[in-house]
Design a binder for these strands. Structure first.
Length: 273
DNA sequence: ACTGGCTCCTGAGGGC
DNA sequence: TGCCCTCAGGAGCCAG
C-alpha cells in the first residue's frame, strides 16, 4: 500500500520532471468514471496536444503546467504515478494514463480512488482547492512565530492543527506523529497552550522529518515506489508511527496509541508532555 | 470563526 | 480454506 505524503509527492515529481518536461501529450486513457471527484469526460480533448511546460508541487498537489492550462493531480491515499512504456498492459487499478510523444506513458494507479485529477484554466493558485492553503513547511514562511500567532486562542489538538492544510501543507498522519515525537509535544495538547519555545521545536521538527524523508526518497510502508520504481527507505527511521506498545527509542517507556481526529496517534507518555 | 464528525474506497489482516 | 468484520487514511464538506 502507498501512503503518499509530501516527501513521496516531491520524490515523484523529481522522478518524472526529466522525462516529461517539454514533452507533448499524444493521448489520454480514462478507465474510471470517478476518483474522489468525477473524472471529466472532457479530459482527453483538453489534454490532447498539450506540451508540458513545468511540473510543480503545492502541498501534496502536483501541477502540470501545460500550453493552455494546468493539470491538477492529487495522489490521495493510495495513488502513485509510474512511467511505463506505451505498450505496457494496464492493471486493475490503473485508472488514468497520459501518453507522450516519446513512447512513454504516465500511469496513475490508485486502488482506493481517493485521488483527484482536474483540468484548470486561469491562474491555478486561485483555484478553491489551492487558494486557501497555508505555507510550504520547507519555505521561509513557515516559522515558529507564524505557528505561534496562528495557534493563539485555539483549543484544537496540536496534531490536528499541524495536519490542517490551511495552517501548513504537506504534514500527513505519519509525519505529524514523527514531528511531535521529535519535538517532545503531546499530540493532544491544545495548540493554544504551546509556549514559544515549543512552537520553535515543533516547526524545527516538521522541517527535519520532511527534509530527511525527501532525502531518503519517501517512506516505504509496504511497497512504496517512486516514479522510476525505486523504493524509499524512510520507514527504517520511524520512531512513533506504527510503534504503539513498543518501547520509546529515547527512554524505553511503552508508546501509547489512540485515535485523534479519527486518525491513529502514537506518542511517548514520558517524553511528550 | 472553530471544532469535530462524516464521507469517499478497497485491500489487508484478524478471528473463527 | 474461506468468510466476515474492522481498520487504514487525505481532505473536502457540513452541522452545531
Amino acid at each position: 500500500m502507498v501512503m503518499p505524503e509530501l516527501p513521496e509527492v516531491e520524490t515523484t515529481r523529481r522522478g518524472i520532471v526529466p522525462h516529461l518536461t517539454g514533452r507533448t501529450v499524444t493521448g489520454i486513457t480514462l478507465r474510471a468514471a470517478k476518483l474522489r471527484l468525477p473524472l471529466s469526460a472532457e479530459l482527453p480533448r483538453q489534454l490532447a496536444g498539450q506540451r508540458i511546460e513545468a511540473i510543480e508541487r503545492r502541498g501534496k498537489y502536483l501541477l502540470f503546467t501545460c500550453s493552455d492550462g494546468t493539470l491538477l493531480l492529487h495522489l490521495g491515499m493510495t495513488g502513485h504515478l509510474r512511467l511505463v512504456p506505451s505498450d505496457s498492459a494496464p492493471g486493475k487499478h490503473d485508472h488514468v494514463e497520459l501518453h507522450f510523444d516519446n513512447n512513454t506513458t504516465l500511469r496513475f494507479t490508485d486502488p482506493r480512488k481517493f485521488g483527484t485529477l482536474l483540468w484548470l484554466t486561469g491562474e491555478p493558485l486561485q483555484h478553491p482547492l489551492l487558494a486557501e492553503l497555508g505555507p510550504e513547511p520547507l519555505s521561509a514562511d513557515f516559522t515558529a512565530e507564524y505557528l505561534f500567532k496562528r495557534s493563539r486562542k485555539r483549543s484544537v489538538a496540536t496534531k490536528l492543527f499541524i495536519m490542517n492544510s490551511k495552517i501548513v501543507v504537506g504534514v500527513g498522519n505519519i509525519y505529524a506523529n514523527e514531528a511531535l515525537f521529535l519535538a517532545g509535544i503531546n499530540p493532544a495538547r491544545a495548540v493554544g497552550s504551546l509556549a514559544p519555545a515549543e512552537t520553535e521545536r515543533l516547526t524545527a521538527a516538521i522541517r527535519q522529518v520532511l527534509t530527511e524523508a525527501i532525502a531518503l526518497g519517501g517512506t516505504t510502508l509496504h511497497d512504496y515506489l517512486d516514479a522510476a520504481g525505486q523504493p524509499g527507505y524512510f520507514s527504517l527511521k520511524l520512531h512513533a508511527y506504527g510503534r504503539g506498545g513498543k518501547p520509546c527509542s529515547v527512554c524505553g517507556t511503552a508508546l501509547q496509541e489512540s485515535r485523534l481526529g479519527n486518525r491513529s496517534t502514537v506518542w511517548c507518555p514520558k517524553c511528550q508532555q
